[in-house]
Design a protein around this nucleic acid. Structure first.
Lengths: 200, 200
DNA sequence: TTACATTTGCTAACGGTGTTAGAAAATATA
DNA sequence: TATATTTTCTAACACCGTTAGCAAATGTAA
């Protein structure tokens, strides 16, 4: 009686193909022009079928947002694990974050952009909490060992995250006029200031 | 023969009413739900009339983006003029920028958000260059007087702008859990670090 | 194998979007 | 008053997300 199993397997398959097709379309034409009908076309089903797998278009986007944060977290953990020293960890995390944003521009734009996702969206993404944890730990470590032990680690984390994100999103505004070196320098500049600020 | 004049006057009037109606709709329902037809309804004209005044919907948005930067620049200049000391100027500019973003959330979201406007958009907004000039001057002044005179003012400007924007946009993601104090502290924290970084 | 029940996927539609073509109405010119 | 011009409208096109309801395929049981 593997019928139910087979059906479930097929259902999972279709769901996966929806996501795959959606992703392909996004890569080719960007988020703005992604449509349910185009996805349906690509998977060779009619449009309403998609609603058997996702509540609506936003749910598809949300799925990608989640995946984006999962991937980002993975990369950050990997970067962090390469060092024991929290100072080096923070630096590695910053570079990994930067790299992720530009290597997965589509993801990053969905995760943070696209009309500045509202509070509701944020609540539905527990992955953002993991992200906080990953970065918070080394910040705490550094503060503990510093002349600045009283400082609020959340405050430092917030500064870290904001600057990084700001750097990236301001950069994505403009074109890439061989500004790569400038950006590398800005990132370095920020990190030096940030770390020396924590040391006190 | 004031006919042509009257016609021109009327045309200007209609154009203004389009922008006014659009703005009212945005304030009430947000950018996402702004539509040409709703604007037409509000100004009591049919939809195609709008295309006699704007090439397309994007052109209307662009107009608001321009106005946003104009207003922002005005506020920044006003803040800057209150001080002669470049250090105080930078601080005042940062606070004014912050205030603008939250007092004119709709503007700020259009200016920077809404799908991360592409390179094409940026080119069409000369006001962004003025913004650069306003902030660059005090940074230069400070650097000149510092132990750090060799540093690149553009690099510092970029850091300044990015951090400020990052702080704001990360903040707009989440809800306002009485985080006002935290944010004020983060801003202060950043400014201290930034200024001491310039002084060298 | 036949009869029924269930699941699956479709077509067609609703109400919306930006935008354009072309007719009609209002206005200006001779 | 007749003609030319401008202004404004209706109607349509080609999309969009989403849903209702029917048809076909599939599974279950006699």
């Amino acid at each position: 009686m593997g019928i139910a199993e087979r059906k479930l397997r097929q259902k999972v398959e279709v769901k996966a193909s929806i996501l795959q097709a959606a992703w392909q379309l996004v890569e080719k034409e960007g988020w703005q022009s992604l449509s349910i009908r185009k996805i349906a076309d690509a998977i060779e089903y009619s449009a309403p079928v998609i609603y058997d797998h996702f509540a609506n278009k936003e749910a598809i986007m949300l799925e990608f947002t989640k995946r984006g944060f999962q991937q980002l977290n993975e990369q950050l953990i990997k970067a962090k694990e390469q060092f024991a020293n929290p100072e080096q960890q923070i630096e590695a995390i910053a570079y990994a974050y930067w790299k992720f944003a530009f290597n997965h521009k589509e993801y990053y734009q969905l995760m943070y952009g696209l009309g500045m996702p509202g509070c509701e969206t944020v609540k539905q993404i527990p992955e953002m909490a993991s992200f906080t944890e990953i970065v918070l730990a080394p910040v705490r470590d550094m503060l503990a060992k510093s002349r600045n032990a009283g400082a609020d680690p959340f405050l430092k984390l917030h500064t870290f995250w904001s600057t990084l994100h700001g750097l990236i999103s301001i950069n994505m505004l403009g074109k890439n006029d061989s500004r790569d070196e400038l950006n590398a320098m800005v990132l370095k500049d920020f990190l030096i200031g940030f770390i020396s600020g924590i040391k006190g």
